[in-house]
Amino acid sequence: MGVGIEVRGLNAWYGKNQSLNSIDMTVAANHVTAVIGPSGCGKSTYVRCLNRMHETIPEARAEGSVKVGEMDVYGSGSDPVEVRRRIGMVFQKPNPFPSMSIYDNVAAGLKLNGFRNRKQMNELVERSLKLAALWDEVKDSLHKKSGASLSGGQQQRLCIARALAVEPEVLLMDEPASALDPISTSKIEELIFQLKQHYTVVIVTHNMQQAARVAEFTAFFLMGSLIEYDKTEKIFTTPADKRTEDYITGRFG
């Protein structure tokens, strides 16, 4: 089951440029929340702050409070590695490990975190691939094929399976379908819909229709600030803020 996320006063910088301004946001457990906004509005930075991926970029830093379930992400005793283990992430471009087979790709997180039980690992790999709706397509070539030999859409589902295998509580998706064709995109969207039964999903997208299709809640970011956050339906029909309205009606961005 997923857990909720509570963000308070989150600021982020790239060098001297501030890219997020005091974000406060509560993300519902076991729901899909979409983050939309024009490019450069800080929506990617925002999700990368949730699992402390932001700070892996040189000169980038973040401050504030993020609580994922009981875990204090930026607390003094918190370890970024532990945080990322508990919060899965799917990236914009599919990034399977090219030197590993499909199986090893999915098992990578488990193995590298010191998980050894072979039988349970097989089960987890199968379960994750099934959850990612990839099992039927790859079950005959789990060990034979490299992760890089799959098609783009399959690769992205493989990356989702890889993220799910370590049983995260939250799944962050940073424009997961932006590099994919429409058919693959619809598969991923369908998948996201399934996943919310088990996980809290935060998805960044520049595609408003996609947000409308998959998310119950939508947050609109502009120039590093959270402008409006509400039920998706409300955002797209009767937004409270003028800027939100301008954006969703296509007046800028």
Binding site: G4, S22, E63, L226, K234
Partner: peptide
């Protein structure tokens, strides 16, 4: 590191933020 909100930088009035509290289970519940 935690809870340091810089009011100088928060260009957005937070009051506009609409929290969908009804639909979201509380943290304790979670």
């Amino acid at each position: 590191m935690s809870d340091s909100v810089d009011p100088m930088n928060s260009t957005e009035p937070l009051g506009k933020l609409q929290k969908p509290a009804t639909a979201i289970p509380s943290m304790a519940q979670v």
